[in-house]
Design a binder for these strands. Structure first.
Ligand SMILES: [Mn+2]
Ligand SMILES: [Mn+2]
Ligand SMILES: [Zn+2]
Ligand SMILES: [Zn+2]
Lengths: 137, 137
DNA sequence: AAGTTGATGCAACCGAGTTGCAAAGTTATT
DNA sequence: AATAACTTTGCAACTCGGTTGCATCAACTT
């Protein structure tokens, strides 16, 4: 009998190894996006490179998306089931300058932009910085 | 008699050294944003650290702004005279996936976002990826 | 001229990300 | 069941952009 995470991995064509299930579990427990270093610390003993490659695999298969919030370490968060990481799937991200957490504002789609003529669009990264609702003003 | 670049530096409260004038000159000649490594190559013989600190000084004094386009190297471009780098001063940036140039779309202001309640806004980074008008489709 | 301040140059360091390679584990073939 | 082929994992070592420490040099102040 297959676990939920097993199925979740398989629908994204990722072979469900023990390691991958564990990483997926950690990711699904997060309320904010997580860096490779953060992820490493969630495990007693796990190799950074294996986690790194696990995240790469997850990202390539659109199970997660990466967020470059300008802090110097890339964050990762689970995609929605239906997400294909196309421009229309994208949402705004928020980096709190107080608690340094990076949140997916999944309810806020990235606004569409009228590019100059003969520019084509492939992707948009929109990161808002400020103070989040959990932090004192 | 003072040069233009000298005046430009002084209005931003930057002491106009020879080095700084040269860097400002290079920056003002660019049609796209430039990285530290790029800048280094524009000079026969110049220390990376000096250029680095020059850029830092320029940025702190809002003569230039930095752009984290996700390529792993930060780019820099001149601010407009009146720019204070406040959210309302900000514009969209464009990274061409073909020619790898990063452009300031100074005509396209960053759209305003309705953040969730009790979130405050300090800054926005919006980078659009795609193919620019100079590159074949 | 001597003293103070800031700018510059060189070397060395840092950390996030990445690669190479061998060992371990998995799946397919005989 | 044994072998072969392929994938995943773990360790070490490396890359590269950015950064710091410190000595030297230049500019300005008294
Ligand atoms: Mn997200
Ligand atoms: Mn710009
Ligand atoms: Zn916060
Ligand atoms: Zn281009």
């Amino acid at each position: 009998m297959k676990s939920d995470s097993e199925k979740q991995l398989e629908t994204r064509n990722i072979k469900p190894t023990a390691m991958r299930e564990l990483v997926l579990k950690v990711l699904s427990e997060q309320t904010a996006a997580i860096s490779l270093a953060d992820l490493e610390q969630k495990f007693e003993k796990a190799d950074k490179v294996t986690l790194y490659r696990t995240l790469k695999t997850f990202e390539e298969n659109k199970l997660i998306h990466s967020i470059d919030d300008g802090t110097g370490s890339v964050k990762y968060a689970l995609c929605k089931e239906t997400c294909q990481c196309h421009p229309e799937d994208l949402h705004v991200h928020f980096l709190c300058t107080k608690c340094k957490q990076t949140y997916c504002l999944t309810d806020i789609p990235v606004p569409s932009i009228n590019l100059p003529t003969h520019f084509t669009l492939e992707n948009i990264n929109m990161v808002v910085k400020g103070v989040c609702s959990n932090c004192p003003k």
